[in-house]
Design a binder for these strands. Structure first.
Lengths: 340, 340
DNA sequence: ACACGAGCTGCAACCGATTGCAAACTCGAT
DNA sequence: ATCGAGTTTGCAATCGGTTGCAGCTCGTGT
């Protein structure tokens, strides 16, 4: 059995209160005593029980992280970032994977909320009202979505899409297809919007081909429709979709980038390993995780403890970065024509 | 603030003890009372504070998971499996990523051990003595390594490697290169051993080309040495390494599988997306996570509470499955020669 | 010699649950 | 009416910490 504060106290010949103070308010206890306590702690390998502390202070030193799918490299990276930053602050992380099941999500988050100080919620499909309710039990920070005046960190999708379109237009592309992710996804909506704006201002034509699963299979499924549009370039919802496109295009004998340029989003590790290596918008994934944790801890340290009452929540925006690899190239000359 | 058991008791007009019993030992309380309590619980949205319960029962309902790198799809899948199974048992999971830093690992695990009932430890580089020490604070289940009589789940590497070699030999390969992972890794050792045995009994020649990082870059680095051996096939430590090999071979103009067959291990999602699609030994990753959790909970439920005193620990073995894709093919005829 | 304040330390209450034990109640039998 | 057995319920102790408050010990100034 692990040593308790009483064991340490006995060994050091002081009261438990003194041990507690020696550890959390060192300047309050006599250096000599402090040393004796430290020795006892060392000898017993004592570490305070966080749970017990949590009962008193109301802070468990634990946060929760909810992601749709850990097997998705994007969320794996994000988790890594959250986890690293949390450890840096000596905070433990509960990880929950909803398995892309929105119905499970609400219940899971509510259950989690009781056990942690705060929650980092990634691209939740829970609706805004539900979110606000949850925010009563625990502080919530949103990733990749902004809503309900809750604090969060999101990517500047508009800017990223503008970079992608600018790159393609510079290569001579005038007709660009867009393979969206799940229709309800915040990212799909904002990326679609960003593409629309960028295309309009850069005099390119945008052809949305619909909504697909944010997976390799989704990309495979979308490929033929992309080809049918006659576009010379395509922007995919994310890298997985883009890689799916690549695979199907290859098996149809359509050459990338000679016949069709492909751009992804995320820059997961796989993007650089694809053939051809994928041009993509790199999103700082671990960075987002780190920032989310900082944001959460800030909210927790705020005087009112939870911060959900405060309407002005901090909202961070992260910019993406265009990574040009081999999947984009000059538009084929045969398809070139005026944009109107 | 969240409702406590006292709030529920007050609302239901009973004592806290009764509420506690109504929730955990329902048959012990009068149905009418039970109903009143249930109503109060419902109305207040009450959920017991796990931490408080943990103080009394000594069981926190929490387990820890330690992995070297979450961004590695292999560990991401494993985490997913652990997480899903744990939730099924209403157990929460702390996830810690050591960032492939063995020195951080020991400390991290010890800290974690105080906060959880048990730990699932993946391919730890901590040494056996350290492990035993840790097992005093919390139950430990090892994944992908067996040691110190601790319970664990591992892959039958020997069998997997035998399948790989048999496949290659059947295709006419007689000289097979082996790109190992980190020398200290348990998997590297066992896979190397399995290959050696399989090669010996199937009359093929095994050429180890050394130890490399278990990453894409490791594969890229190993490729030229593989080529230099003159082998007609190569088995890589894992799929990431295999994909790295594929990339470098491609850029050197070496055709896979016409000139060289490549086999990976793991069957991560990326393996199917590689070009050519990778032949590999599929390891049941989520399954391993699930089994590890079951094992851990079994150990925890054992009469002596921790089980580390019991020398006979359960050890599960999972078999891999050969997945043949496009990266393996008949040995080139020009290189064929007797195996001695 | 005495008062006073500063610096430490310990007592005891408390956080939110669980649980052994005993009290209270119910009901049927004597 | 009394008793005993069985069922339900509450009291109070407990887990491992934290913290307000009071008390103790000194050193110093007068």
């Amino acid at each position: 059995m692990a040593a308790t504060i009483r064991d340490v106290a006995r060994l050091a010949g002081v009261s438990p209160s003194t041990v507690s103070r020696a550890l959390s308010l060192p300047e309050m206890v006599n250096p000599a005593t402090r040393a004796r306590v430290a020795a006892a702690v060392e000898q017993l390998g004592y570490a305070p029980n966080r749970a017990a502390r949590g009962l008193i202070t109301g802070r468990t030193g634990t946060i929760g992280l909810v992601v749709p799918d850990l097997a998705n490299p994007f969320f794996a990276s994000l988790t890594k970032g959250v986890q690293a930053r949390a450890r840096h602050h000596d905070v433990a992380v509960f990880v929950a994977d909803t398995d892309e099941d929105p119905s499970a999500e609400a219940g899971l988050v509510r259950a989690l909320a009781k056990q942690v100080d705060g929650i980092v919620l990634c691209s939740p499909r829970v609706d805004d009202d539900e979110l606000v309710a949850i925010a009563q039990d625990a502080a919530v920070v949103l990733v990749n979505r902004s809503a309900a005046g809750l604090p969060g960190v999101a990517y500047d999708n508009e800017d990223g899409m503008r970079q992608a379109v600018a790159h393609l237009v510079a290569l001579g592309h005038r007709k660009i297809a867009w393979v969206g992710g799940p229709a309800t996804s915040w990212s799909t909506q904002h990326r679609g919007l960003g593409l629309r704006n960028a295309a309009d201002s850069l005099r390119a034509r945008l052809v949305p081909v619909g909504n697909f699963a944010p997976t390799y299979e989704g990309g495979v499924a979308a490929a033929d429709q992309v080809v049918a549009t006659g576009a010379t370039a395509v922007v995919a919802y994310n890298d997985l979709v883009a890689i799916g496109l690549l695979a199907r295009l290859h098996s149809r004998g359509i050459s990338v980038p000679a016949d069709l340029s492909v751009v992804g989003v995320d820059d997961i590790a796989m993007a650089g390993m694809a053939r051809p290596a994928l041009t993509t918008i790199r999103l700082p994934k671990q960075e987002a995780g780190r920032i989310a944790v900082e944001l959460l801890l800030t909210v927790l340290d705020a005087p009112d403890g939870l911060g959900y009452t405060r309407p002005v929540a901090h909202q961070d925006e992260l910019k993406g970065e265009l990574i040009v690899r081999d999947s984009t190239g000059p538009a084929p000359r045969t398809d070139r024509r005026p944009s109107h």
